[in-house]
Design a protein around this nucleic acid. Sequence first.
DNA 1: TCCCGTTTCTCATATAGTGAGACACTAGGC
DNA 2: GCCTAGTGTCTCACTATATGAGAAACGGGA
Lengths: 251, 251
Amino acid sequence: MRNGTPKVAAFRRTLAMLDAVLADGGQSGIAAIARGIGMPVATAHRQVATLVEEGYLARDAARRHIAGPRLIGMLHRLDEKQIVAACAAPVLHRLAAESGTVVQLGTFENDMVTYRVKTGQGAGALFSRVGMQLEAYCSGIGKVLLANLPDDHRRAYLATGPFPALTARTITDPDAIADELERVRAQGFAFDAQEVADGLVCAAVPVMWPDGRVLAAISSSQFGEQVRPPEELLPALSAAARDIERTAFGG
Amino acid sequence: MRNGTPKVAAFRRTLAMLDAVLADGGQSGIAAIARGIGMPVATAHRQVATLVEEGYLARDAARRHIAGPRLIGMLHRLDEKQIVAACAAPVLHRLAAESGTVVQLGTFENDMVTYRVKTGQGAGALFSRVGMQLEAYCSGIGKVLLANLPDDHRRAYLATGPFPALTARTITDPDAIADELERVRAQGFAFDAQEVADGLVCAAVPVMWPDGRVLAAISSSQFGEQVRPPEELLPALSAAARDIERTAFGG
DNA sequence: TCCCGTTTCTCATATAGTGAGACACTAGGC
DNA sequence: GCCTAGTGTCTCACTATATGAGAAACGGGA
């Protein structure tokens, strides 16, 4: 969408109407809805009737309207991790541009980290690609995700070793990893100090879903001789995480 | 909606497009979407662009489309209990017609049962109204809902007595109620044998949300001298509960 | 560099939504 | 039991507006 593409007003109206009806959770009859958005009753009626017929809204015996089965079905099908990734992308682009680091977002599946968003320039960009799956125990994002797993799940993961060393600094002992994860969870962020690749350092923080689960983690990485200490990246990174949470939730 | 109201095709198209894009969870670019539903690319582009601009869809760097923040916002605004009630209404009407009993759906709020749907003819219809809140410990619906509460919540409820007797058969002793609830949970249904009103008997079963929580209960009640034994109502009642669950979830 | 698939844009045409107003229910007051 | 007020439903002439063919800009991959 470069710009100036004419938009489909009917689509806006559809969603606006859905929003309006859902907004007051089943309090409204047609007349109230119409009044609420300043629209002729006849029009509101026709539109709502359509949504009801299609099953996106439901109407009870007292002619009041709430979410219908189709809407529920649709919303239950949503993949929360994709949503977070989608909402995160613009925030991460900005962070990468402002910090001059490589910024990524990853989620946890099948004991591996899936990298879903990646942005920013620099040599640090060489070590991963979008869609790639990497081991979790050594990267910043991986540590954050592991640290926020349910206890039994994390214990099970730690029992799946051995954990190969990728550099001289990789933590490979399960107990040492467990300690590190405990620390990460307590402090709310993780560092990777050349544990994945020599010269690559990063800081990572969790992104939380409104219900408190950690669905993703974001990291800011640098590579080479001249890097800022990762602590310096934390404030911007945390701010970005808050931004993402706000976008993904509030709309 | 009696019938024949002209419907707004644009609304259908809007939701159809949303559905189509969500269906393949972020795999699709514009061209693929257009092909998938047999629509000119130009049109698909305009429509999707609108949804993206409004925030209902999001587009990643690779031009692939998934759910956007507004859609998430919607998801979080849904009142699950209302949804269940809405989806249940038609099923319950049918059940009432076929069984000749009074059928109701209730949910649990603030230690009381809220009656959200009520249908069917007969004297049994005298004892409640939609929107009414009644004590939980004595009715069939109330027992089912209490029995499926988290343990600590149920214990807290049982400590709130005393529980007044509404008829000679009302169970009023907290320990006896606890036993009854244990039985109800184990067997998956409850009876009310004239414990709320003399001559009123009912059977009740839980309605489950897809995540396993019991959000509502439905009951089938009869009143008077000539009533069928409540056990006979159970098969139809359970079938209705399954129906409701299917509607409320699958769409 | 030249492709090919994809995305974006333009514009004449016809489809399809709008809203005023009339009519039909329903509930509640008297 | 009748009336009234508040809703919900329907009809129809008017026009706003979505459509889709085609062409132009991208943008990777060979």
